[in-house]
Design a protein around this nucleic acid. Structure first.
Length: 259
DNA sequence: AACATCCGCAACCGCGAGGTG
DNA sequence: TCACCTCGCGGTTGCGGATGT
């Protein structure tokens, strides 16, 4: 495929936007919207490429953008979500109203990454993971159905059931279904697809295929007809522990489901 | 005061996904 | 099915202000 010539070759402007250009873009989008970014600059009378216009609008000019420093809560949310989703900035931004993926990415690289590194150096392993790691390493556990207790520093506990050392299901021992409901299709598919490296390494091994239906005995529908695989208990542990720390999920967690 | 270095952030680049004819 | 196009994403760059020497 032949790539379209870059802005400079087309005689288009690059670099910082002037207030005049901003105003032209704002006025045009207010009047006509932004159906076609590629056609927009020409129609609006801007000597910019569509890509540049889209970036300027989505990262800076959009009226719903929240300016200013990130709050402590927002930073914590980013750290937590990054642990689950990795560098999927747009997915993280979707959970932080008014913040853009670019902004979050910048904050991560300039502040949070450093802070996290410092914290990790200081932190001790407060969370009990012995059962998890033991089961992960023991091949005799294959095909057994074992209940393991996962403890967290919050003194609450819950149980996760799994069916082998490589194949897992999420089950709730609680009669309250809210935990299951909040781990909805979008959230699960995001976290599942977040670790594509694990999925790739699993390849076609049928032992590493697990149903994406995350619950047993719950009313929740299967996510879709395909199967996901995951061979890392830490992933599920993170999913359950972090669910309680993500505000929008936390709101819906009943007390007896909190980890 | 002058220069060097660091840091934050806006903007750019290249790629892949998805849509369309 | 394929080629082409547009859009959105994530990585990276480079400018300009802040800070240090």
């Amino acid at each position: 495929m032949v790539r379209a010539p870059c802005c400079e070759k087309m005689g288009l402007k690059k670099g910082p936007w002037t207030p005049e250009e901003d105003q032209i873009l704002i006025n045009y989008i207010r009047l006509y919207g932004h159906g076609n970014w590629r056609a927009l600059p020409k129609q609006a009378g801007l000597l910019r490429c569509g890509k540049s216009c889209r970036l300027r609008w989505t990262n800076y000019l959009r009226p719903d953008i929240k300016r200013g420093n990130f709050s402590r809560e927002e930073e914590e949310t980013i750290i937590n979500l990054h642990e689950i989703l990795g560098n999927r900035w747009s997915a993280i931004a979707a959970r932080l109203p008014g913040r853009t993926d670019n902004e979050i990415k910048n904050v991560w690289h300039t502040h949070l990454k450093k802070r996290l590194k410092q914290n990790q150096n200081q932190a001790s392993a407060a969370t009990t993971m012995s059962d998890v790691s033991k089961c992960n390493q023991d091949p005799k556990k294959e095909q057994e159905h074992v209940n393991i207790s996962i403890s967290s520093p919050q003194e609450c506990s819950s149980e996760v059931s799994y069916v082998s050392n490589t194949c897992m299901k999420i089950e709730s021992s609680s009669s309250d279904q809210s935990l299951l409901e909040i781990i909805d299709e979008n959230f699960l598919s995001e976290v599942l697809s977040a670790d594509s490296s694990v999925m790739e390494s699993a390849g076609d091994n049928p032992e590493l295929q697990i149903s994406s239906t995350p619950v047993a005995g719950a009313t929740m529908e299967p996510l879709n007809s395909s199967c996901y695989m995951y061979d890392n208990m830490d992933f599920w542990f993170n999913l359950f522990t972090r669910a309680g720390e993500i505000p929008e999920l936390s709101e819906n967690l009943s007390n007896d489901c909190r980890l």
